[in-house]
Amino acid sequence: MQNEAKASKPYVRLATRKDTFELAPRLRQEDVEEVFHSSGMPPELALRFSLAVSNIAYAVVWRGQVIALFGIAGQLTWGEEGATGFPWMLASEELPLIRKSFLRECRGYVEGWLEAHDELEGYAWAENQVHIQWLRWLGFTIDPPVPFGINDQPFQRFYLRKEDHHV
């Protein structure tokens, strides 16, 4: 019984290319639309691209399935000013089911990214309220929506500056 409980506990590990193929068909509809409106890419290609350009990427695994991938892209310039990191995350419908444990863990990743980058920045589709709420909870500033991407859809720039961030 104890092994069953341990097996059902979510965990984070380094992401692999295989994870992108596993997660792509199960992405949340809002994530599929966000990716399409920003880049025109289908889910599999967007996940593979995100993994390829990332300095590091992670898979959230629960009950034997990859339920989210996230990472950070951007030039690593440890100790140099001006380095911007570009965080990203795409998830399946199962992610909210482990919300509490995921939220406890994700702040630590942001803290680590701020050690290597002066600022974290990206754009989230304004209709993807789950992402917007998560980013606010993490302490990101969210700008008003502006036209962005291949369809000029409303996207909101989000950013977090090292100098403004308090642990």
Rank of each mutant, 00 (worst) to 15 (best):
Gln2Pro: 01
Gln2Thr: 11
Glu4Lys: 03
Glu4Cys: 07
Lys6Asn: 06
Ser8Arg: 05
Pro10Lys: 02
Tyr11Lys: 08
Leu14Ala: 13
Thr16His: 06
Thr16Ile: 09
Asp19Trp: 09
Thr20Ala: 14
Arg26Lys: 05
Leu27Phe: 03
Gln29Pro: 01
Glu33Cys: 08
Glu33Met: 11
Val35Thr: 02
His37Leu: 15
Gly40Tyr: 03
Met41Asn: 05
Glu44Met: 04
Glu44Leu: 09
Ala46Gln: 12
Val53Asn: 02
Asn55Trp: 14
Val61His: 09
Val61Ser: 07
Arg63Gly: 10
Gln65Met: 04
Gln65His: 01
Ile67Lys: 00
Leu69Arg: 09
Gly71Gln: 14
Ala73His: 11
Gln75Gly: 14
Thr77Leu: 10
Ala83Asp: 11
Thr84Pro: 01
Thr84Tyr: 12
Phe86His: 13
Pro87Phe: 15
Pro87Ser: 09
Pro87Val: 14
Leu90Met: 10
Ala91Leu: 12
Leu95Pro: 05
Leu95Lys: 03
Leu97Thr: 10
Ile98Cys: 00
Arg99Tyr: 12
Phe102Ala: 06
Leu103Arg: 01
Gly112Gln: 10
Trp113Lys: 10
Leu114Phe: 03
Leu114Arg: 00
Ala116Arg: 07
His117Ala: 07
His117Met: 13
Asp118Gln: 15
Glu119Trp: 05
Leu120Pro: 04
Tyr123Asn: 04
Ala126Arg: 03
Glu127Arg: 05
Asn128Glu: 07
Gln129Leu: 13
Val130Gly: 08
Val130Ala: 12
Ile132Phe: 15
Ile132Asp: 04
Gln133Leu: 02
Leu135Thr: 02
Ile142Met: 01
Asp143Gln: 07
Pro144Phe: 01
Pro145Arg: 00
Ile150Gln: 11
Ile150Ser: 03
Ile150Val: 14
Ile150Cys: 10
Gln153Met: 04
Gln156Lys: 08
Gln156Thr: 09
Phe158Cys: 01
Leu160Ile: 09
Arg161Asn: 14
Lys162Ser: 14
Lys162Cys: 13
Asp164Glu: 15
His166Cys: 03
